[in-house]
Design a protein around this nucleic acid. Structure first.
Lengths: 200, 200
DNA sequence: CGAAGTCTGGACTTGCCGGTCCATTTTCGC
DNA sequence: GCGAAAATGGACCGGCAAGTCCAGACTTCG
């Protein structure tokens, strides 16, 4: 079933509209009718593009949002080659989540799909992998440049940092405060710098 | 409306049964009928003890689980007075979540109630506060004993560590792996030991 | 330009499940 | 033990929203 140009546009409009609706009201309150109203589509369109109904739509929303998460951190995340770059990245992450605030369509869509589902697991897992991969890559680059102690295990450090970020965001989602995210980011980076040879 | 001995027992049975059911099937799939079947109660009992229905029940489950989270970490969490105690605590946290695996009634109940709700916020917020408080207390004790550098900000360190734990658990919930939680715990503690005076 | 197939509108069905009600039984203080 | 209050059983209701269907309009490509 090939998608015409128009069809693809409609499909995207639906996904984005659903994401907006989720941001506005939450997933539990998400009704197909709301999505229809918001995107000026009819029920048959929803089922035309997402034959498995609501769950399939939610999964598409999750995928869409997952892609944004990494994109929003570029180009910094892809080029963590100096301490300056690390701090710019830190600022960007913080700004992004501060702006997003309490409403995270990704987290919430996944929780509805069931994070323990195969489909949910793969969306979340891939995001986590790519994220951690880029962090580890950054750490290795810094080690090559002699700015991070070579005896640190890059993957393990990246895992811990990523965990801190995830937790910080999770706490942000419930408390509305960014203090934890900030602390996790700052102390995580600080930890990388400890025992570091030529501190700028 | 005082609760008789029997009434209190029934109430508790309902909460625990609901938690089990959530562990088994998830929140979205949670139907009152399932809880009734599992706890051998009738619908009128559910509404007798939780007049506001499902949401009130879910909140009670969340509260119940939140209390367990802290309790399960005792007595270690309350007495972080030596590095040995810290490592024993670390092991306990890891064991607890490893055993719990992918199904976390607290996380999932809160996501249904809406973490951004006042009620949800208060349950999660209080848990987080108490948890972080005990960590910070432990750090201060260690500082008094000269085992952690006095210039560290105990609250900030505790916040970062807590974020790491939360993120580690969150990742555990979706991937099933404890690597991130472990890394966050170990590197978090390692960070506390850096620059520390009389390393054992 | 024309046919195959995509896209769209919207009415209709359906089943589930949260919530209400009242009658009956049990508990518990005095 | 006795009466008031609490606990229990289970039938019933009602609404909501997911999903189905078919007829008709638009796209696309030879």
């Amino acid at each position: 079933m090939p998608l015409t140009r128009k069809g693809a546009a409609t499909r995207r409009r639906i996904i984005e509209g659903a994401a907006e609706q989720i941001r506005a009201e939450g997933v539990f309150a998400l009704r197909l009718e709301d999505v229809m109203a918001r995107t000026a589509t009819s029920k048959s369109q929803l089922f035309h593009y997402f034959p498995d109904g609501k769950d399939e739509l939610l999964l598409a929303v999750a995928r869409h949002e997952a892609a944004r998460v990494i994109d929003d951190q570029q180009p910094e995340l892809g080029a963590l080659t100096s301490w300056d770059a690390w701090y710019r990245w830190r600022d960007k992450v913080l700004a992004r989540y501060r702006a997003q605030g309490v409403d995270c369509p990704l987290h919430v869509a996944l929780s509805r799909v069931g994070a323990a589902t195969d489909a949910g697991r793969s969306v979340a897992g891939e995001l986590l992998d790519r994220w951690q991969g880029q962090l580890a890559e950054g750490i290795r680059r810094m080690q090559e440049g002699g700015e991070i102690a070579p005896e640190l295990d890059a993957d393990r450090e990246a895992a811990a940092l990523l965990a801190g970020i995830q937790g910080g965001v999770l706490i942000l989602l419930t408390t509305g405060g960014t203090a934890h995210l900030e602390a996790a980011l700052d102390l995580g980076i600080a930890h990388l710098r400890t025992g570091n040879h030529r501190d700028r």
